[in-house]
Design a protein around this nucleic acid. Sequence first.
DNA 1: GTAGTATTTAACTTGACAGCTAATTAACTA
DNA 2: TAGTTAATTAGCTGTCAAGTTAAATACTAC
Lengths: 128, 128
Amino acid sequence: MRVAVDDELDATFMALADPTRRAIVARLARGDATVNDLAVPFNMTLPGISKHLKVLERSGLISRSRHAQYRPCHLEPAALDAALSWIETSRRTWTERFDKLDAHLRDIQQGHIHQAAPASGEEAADHD
Amino acid sequence: MRVAVDDELDATFMALADPTRRAIVARLARGDATVNDLAVPFNMTLPGISKHLKVLERSGLISRSRHAQYRPCHLEPAALDAALSWIETSRRTWTERFDKLDAHLRDIQQGHIHQAAPASGEEAADHD
DNA sequence: GTAGTATTTAACTTGACAGCTAATTAACTA
DNA sequence: TAGTTAATTAGCTGTCAAGTTAAATACTAC
């Protein structure tokens, strides 16, 4: 058993942390491209781009094939999906937390409004 | 106007590239916590955690307030959303590309059946 | 074979980051 | 006042990533 999904997410997020690599990913989303194609928009040497591609490949964000002397890159959406899922999970947890709080507050207001109905101090103040 | 959105995404993805920091984010999605709270599950010194929190704060993923000597951390979903959006955009571009290709292939099949229909050719390709 | 194109590897510099320990600031408590 | 808890800063180290140039590899074409 490997060290789990963690390492893949590490590599994926790390790969996406560089603007050049994000631009490459965005470019590859539109279609496959060779290293030279990818290098054009960037003010960087070819070995530099090659290194970035290696990082992207290691993270699973792209894969590469071979056509003659070209090594075209193509995007692998699965890695993108994994990163997406991770963020969505935390995001949803956060939202649900507030949904629950809202429901709780509504409950208090509707259920106990005619009960004691303290004269004025009905606050949402929540604890710690 | 130099500091584009890029830098924020750099910082956000970089912050998410560390498993400890992702765990912290996941923990904070469930509710605010102090530094000591956050440190418990990790086999790491307090200054270590403090550094991670600084990285998260710089990226905008969390913010901090002050209660007496405590400095509780809160998740800031906006940074999470920005990262989410970026990935979704590339993901959607990728999907649309295949939707268009599929439509094109259907078109070809219906109009020109006599042509060879590529099995599952995923080429897009402007080379050769 | 030689030449040319596409891409990678090697070797190196620079700078940032993760982790530690020790010392320090900030706020509360007795 | 001193003492305690919460958290940070300072200083150090080892590691690793980003970029470079120069040389090597993998093909195509003559």
